[in-house]
């Protein structure tokens, strides 16, 4: 009896946790896929259900007959969606590269700081992460707008004669992306650099390597897992970013997250919004798979 109770207890926890995730994270994707294949309708909910659960075998036959790729064809045909996808990828790739270039020196400096300062520095990196994303992006509107702090400062210094039109431009989106995601790049990089055995660098230097040589042959390769983790933590959410392009970007910085939002909330075209979601999922699935592989390898190496 107690053995049975013990087994039940052991099974109940995982079943509850994974069952919840399967029901509220896994299952919804199947529904998105299904609805992306149905036709829009001016009803509530605004789509024609493809599968009628009560109809049994006939329902399944109808399902196969009713499936069409109309929404996906729209995505490919209408240049709007292709543009949005390319802009998303460009902003995510460019932003991630910029984050790596800016984040690396910061993470490196953190790892080289005195031991007793490091917890404080990590905390200072983490606090912005706890602060509202919306507020942090909003703070940049006052800085970048026509009569904002940046233009006022530049005008006062005599560096420009005319205010720069930065807000509502791709540059503003880039600034927002780098600002909002900097901790996601710095923290994994710091974790990798902090673990690095300094003896290796000293050995390389003793054997005649230059500072740069030691960095390129020891530090950089050993911090690569951190760089990869940071890049994925930034790249994937940026592809689907909505708040930053919406608040800081102009009409020309149309990204997938914004397209999905407007298809859903403004046009009420749920099937097309679902198709956009599936396309976006495809774009980010590859990096996720690669990340999982890298994580698995890392965990194997250090049990």
């Amino acid at each position: 009896m107690t053995a049975l109770a013990e087994r039940l207890r052991q099974v109940a926890g995982p079943v509850l946790a994974f069952g919840w995730l399967a029901a509220f994270f896994g299952l919804p994707f199947a529904i998105v896929l299904k609805i992306s294949l149905s036709d829009p309708a001016t009803a509530l909910p605004p789509y024609t259900p493809v599968l009628d659960w009560e109809a049994g075998i006939a329902g399944w036959a109808n399902l196969l007959a009713a499936l069409d790729f109309e929404n996906y064809r729209t995505l490919v045909r209408d240049p709007l969606y292709l543009d949005a996808a390319l802009t998303s990828l460009a902003v995510a790739a460019g932003g991630t590269a910029l984050l790596a270039v800016i984040g690396y020196p910061i993470a490196y400096a953190m790892a080289r700081a005195a031991r007793r300062w490091q917890p404080l520095l990590v905390a200072l990196m983490v606090v912005p992460f706890w602060t509202s994303f919306l507020i942090r992006v909003y703070a940049w509107i006052a800085i970048l707008k026509g009569d904002g702090f940046l233009n006022r400062a530049l005008l006062a210094l005599g560096l420009i004669d005319q205010p720069l039109a930065i807000l509502n431009s791709p540059a503003a989106v880039m600034v927002g992306v780098v600002y909002a995601y900097l901790p996601f790049m710095v923290l994994p990089l710091y974790a990798a650099l902090e673990r690095l055995d300094r003896g290796l660098i000293e050995a390389a230097r003793d054997l005649g390597a230059s500072r740069l040589g030691a960095f390129l042959s020891i530090t950089l390769p050993l911090s690569l897992p951190g760089l990869v983790a940071g890049a994925l933590l930034c790249f994937i959410p940026i592809v689907g970013e909505f708040i930053i392009p919406d608040l800081l970007g102009g009409a020309d910085t149309l990204m997938l997250g914004r397209v999905l939002w407007s298809e859903f909330f403004s046009n009420r075209d749920w099937p097309l919004a679902s198709a956009v979601a599936m396309a976006m999922l495809l774009l980010v699935a590859l990096p996720v798979v690669l990340f999982r592989e890298a994580e698995a390898r890392r965990l194997e190496r250090e049990p």
């Binding site: 509220f24 529904i31 994925l232 592809v239 999905l260 859903f264 976006m280 980010v284 996720v288």
Partner: peptide, 29 residues
Amino acid sequence: RPLLSGLVYAPMVMPEVITGLSLLLLFVG
């Protein structure tokens, strides 16, 4: 394990618009 740990980690990086849309469609369904 690979599937289950993927299920746990995926929501952290999933773009919010996808999570939001898919959950809404589930609730409506």
